[in-house]
């Protein structure tokens, strides 16, 4: 792993475990009377969000602040981007302000990678188009490990709009890296063309998989990215691929239900499932802060020699 976190594909198993173990230690900070560590005092983290986001941006902001970094929030609305400024010019502006890390979310796949070539600081990908969302996958893996005690050997079923989901891609890569067996379930129209090259199984039959699943991860139907008719009606999608209380009954006793948020209640997940004891949705948000603290610490906490920080921490 280099000094950026752009894709899960850049991590090896030890890097991933180091991030999860570090997050485990940092999770304790949330339970302390003083929820702050002085580690990144004097460092500046810029949140550069070209797409709407609630939990990811707030989560990164909370993580940076708990490590005492200065946080500058930038959202495309109300900025010079609205006047037509390019990503590169925005990046150079940030560079001039001395950003030590840039957390970027962008609608274009590859935007984070491009940005990494333009700035001196570390770049953390907070979602680029339909490509990847590595910190979401890390927090999902962290949540699974906390709930079920391990990841190795678990059967994970990821259901829904895989085509538009950066969460699905990052999760398939990470969970496979950590030894889980991942199966994607989606209507054929919502699977990417190259899915056969992903390290996972593909199925179209949710009901046959549920009794064998340790983890079910429901993906949001990303209506805002759908410019064609991917399925006939929302109701039909919900009946075939949505998780309702009856389907949840067929899961094993210990199985958990995850959702990266934001949810479309009643579409991919029923409200009573989302609020059930099996659901980890609220935990995922809390764990997100710990995981992002770990990532920021490992990227920024040591010498800024530009070398491999994670490499040397082992």
């Amino acid at each position: 792993m280099n000094r950026h976190l752009i894709s899960i594909a850049d991590l090896n198993r030890d890097d991933a475990l180091l991030i999860l173990d570090t997050a485990e230690e940092l999770a304790q900070v949330a339970d302390r009377p003083i929820r702050k560590l002085p580690t990144l005092r004097g460092r500046t983290v810029v949140n550069l969000f070209f797409e709407d986001s609630t939990r990811t941006r707030i989560s990164f902001e909370a993580a940076a602040k708990r490590l005492s970094a200065d946080v500058i929030n930038f959202s495309a609305k109300g900025s010079s981007v609205a006047k037509g400024e390019s990503l590169k010019d925005t990046a150079l502006t940030l560079e001039a302000m001395g950003a030590d890390a840039v957390v970027i979310r962008h609608a274009a796949s590859g935007a984070a990678h491009r940005l990494a070539g333009w700035v001196r600081g570390s770049v953390v990908n907070a979602g680029d188009g339909m490509h990847e969302h590595p910190t979401q996958a890390l927090l999902d893996a962290f949540t699974i490990r906390r709930r079920l005690g391990r990841i190795d050997g678990l059967a994970v079923t990821i259901v829904g709009d895989v085509l538009h989901s950066r969460v699905a891609r990052s999760n398939v890569l990470l969970l496979r890296l950590l030894g889980a067996d991942v199966t994607l379930v989606a209507p054929p129209t919502l699977l990417p063309v190259a899915v056969s090259s992903w390290p996972c199984e593909v199925s179209y039959d949710l009901d046959s998989l549920l009794p064998k699943s340790d983890v079910v991860m429901m993906l949001r139907v990303q209506a805002e990215r759908m410019n064609a008719a991917y399925f006939p009606t929302v109701r039909e999608y919900s009946r075939r691929y949505g998780l309702d209380a009856d389907r949840m009954q067929t899961l094993p006793e210990h199985a958990i239900v995850m959702h990266p948020g934001p949810m479309n209640r009643g579409v991919e997940i029923a409200a009573d499932v989302a609020d059930s004891a099996r659901s980890t949705i609220v935990e995922q948000v809390a764990n997100g802060v710990s995981v992002r603290m770990a990532v920021l610490y490992l990227l920024l906490g040591g010498a800024q020699a530009g070398g491999s920080q994670l490499e040397a921490a082992r």
Binding site: D21, P38, G302
Partner: peptide, 21 residues
């Protein structure tokens, strides 16, 4: 009591692995 996050020499070397508190 892990003191890694409070060290004054953090920037002199790559990020360290945390201990347990």
């Amino acid at each position: 009591l892990d003191v890694t996050m409070y060290r004054d020499d953090l920037r002199l070397r790559p990020a360290r692995t945390l201990g347990h508190t």
